[in-house]
């Protein structure tokens, strides 16, 4: 995919807020930020990275502050919380403070590669989807370094949820997603 074809489809005012909830990610955070910046700068995509650190004892927030100094406070936004309050409320906290009209959630531990973000954006634009979500279970999706037990639990749990709920989504528990800010504010208040 070329930057220019994507660029023509993105409205000038579109902005993507990438939410990165962190807890003890002092080593991974610089890498994920570096990857995001390298893949998105010069792509014509306007974005910010919102780091939501839940009071990590390992000093993740210090690293985040350094990254903000390096890359600027437009790109790197810090929305830390005092203590470990959980992933769900971290997303809500991030959505509330995001300045973008689109929200991207992803893991900071390098489970999700930022190189896919332009594909998420293109997919969403193609039919004005409410949500675009990454998957480990079909197509090019996958995992690395999982043992048999972990794969079995993952596949087993996925089979059961697919059977019981038939959600029309192959991966319900993955957390690499693109959503639309105004379409989720009613849900999160």
């Amino acid at each position: 995919m070329t930057g220019s074809s994507l660029d023509s489809e993105i409205t000038r005012s579109d902005k993507y807020s990438i939410l990165l909830p962190t807890y003890n990610e002092r080593e991974n955070l610089p890498i994920i930020i570096w990857l995001i910046i390298n893949y998105l700068d010069g792509s014509g995509i306007d974005y910010e990275v919102v780091i939501i650190d839940d009071g990590s004892p390992d000093g993740t927030l210090d690293v985040a502050k350094q990254l903000q100094k390096i890359y600027g406070s437009y790109r790197i936004v810090l929305r830390p919380r005092e203590k470990k309050l959980g992933l769900g409320t971290a997303y809500i906290h991030g959505i509330k403070h995001a300045t973008g009209n689109y929200i991207i959630i992803m893991d900071a531990d390098l489970s999700h590669h930022p190189k896919f973000i332009p594909q998420f954006i293109e997919k969403q634009k193609s039919k004005d989807y409410d949500i675009v979500t990454g998957t480990r279970y079909v197509g090019g999706g996958g995992v690395y370094g999982w043992d048999f037990k972990r794969k079995l639990i993952s596949r087993g749990a996925n089979f059961i949820t697919q059977l019981l709920l038939r959600p029309g989504v192959s991966d319900l528990t993955g957390s690499f997603r693109l959503i639309i800010q105004e379409r989720c504010t009613t849900e999160v208040g």
Binding site: G140, G142, W146, L152
Partner: peptide, 11 residues
């Protein structure tokens, strides 16, 4: 499930 475990895409 077993088939999917053994064909789980290893990246």
């Amino acid at each position: 499930v077993l088939y999917r475990v053994f064909t789980f895409n290893n990246c």
